[in-house]
Design a protein around this nucleic acid. Structure first.
Lengths: 153, 153
DNA sequence: GAAAAAACCTACCCGGCTGGTAGGATTTAC
DNA sequence: GTAAATCCTACCAGCCGGGTAGGTTTTTTC
């Protein structure tokens, strides 16, 4: 049970944008260099964030990306959801958005799906932790733990 | 982000065992039939549960598996952990059991890994939901939602 | 208006892992 | 001794994650 690297890269990208001046475009190249990530792949990642309305972009020379909203107004659940497609502990959750505790894949020997009760709780736990964390917190954290560049080499 | 089918099958298996008389062995074949799961694959799944000390087994004819403890004393975190190997939202968590919020895969441009703060919270959310759910709850749920077999066909 | 810098798009690809299958060896009840 | 079961190990096929490649379009700058 692991998130894809898209989530990791995308979150980093968002933190990086959160560290920048608002409204001012930052090129992907700069972010890729700063984080040591492959530029071409980052393009695919940022495309998801753009389609989700989390970042905005400007094309052409000196173009780039910036946050569509203030970091305080961006819950990480939105970010991860945009990157992962959906936040589901099991496959049968992906296409079943109802809260019904009923296993979609089979009637299950004439009784309700007990595992779905469990996965529903797990999903709740994940969502809650993501919803209560804002991008601003991560940006703040990255600032706090920033090491002062050693003056002398 | 999805749990493997081992988790699904294994949890079902545990629920099935929880529905049985304690200490009394149930054959995998019976469970495989009841749940409609491939027997040979279930063998691999149950092996993990046995190695984790969650189920006990008896070989030979009329052998089978039963719960090593009462369902009330089995938190689902143990079950899922046995089945999945580890419960980690990101790869770098698997081999880093410390609580240090520090990215294991790279020094990250001279600052702390902000994403790890997020994943730590997510992991906490998952673990809490798994720890506070016992097998007994799932067994109880499966009993409550059991449909009365229709008398007439 | 040419060239550079950037976003944007789409097709492809490779290795690893998930979800099994196959086939047996061993143990025990009857 | 035979049937029923656990136990063990090797193998495999397809899917998908994590990229690469190679363009097209838009915008700025000189």
């Amino acid at each position: 049970m692991i998130f894809s690297s898209k989530a990791e890269y995308g979150v980093r990208l968002m933190v990086e944008l959160g560290r920048q001046v608002p409204e001012h475009p930052t090129s992907l190249k700069a972010i890729a260099d700063a984080e040591g990530l492959p530029l071409a792949y980052l393009e695919q990642v940022v495309a998801r964030l753009r389609k989700a309305g989390l970042v905005m972009s400007a094309r052409g020379a000196h173009g780039g990306y910036w946050l569509a909203r203030a970091p305080e107004d961006i819950p990480m659940s939105e970010v991860v959801q945009a990157l992962e497609g959906s936040i589901a502990p099991m496959e049968c959750f992906v296409h079943d958005h109802t809260e019904r505790v009923l296993c979609s894949h089979e009637p299950d020997a004439g009784r309700g799906c007990a595992t779905k009760l469990l996965w529903t709780r797990v999903q709740g736990g994940i969502l809650r932790s993501l919803q209560t964390t804002t991008l601003a917190e991560l940006v703040e954290f990255s600032r706090r733990t920033e090491r002062v560049p050693t003056a002398a080499a």
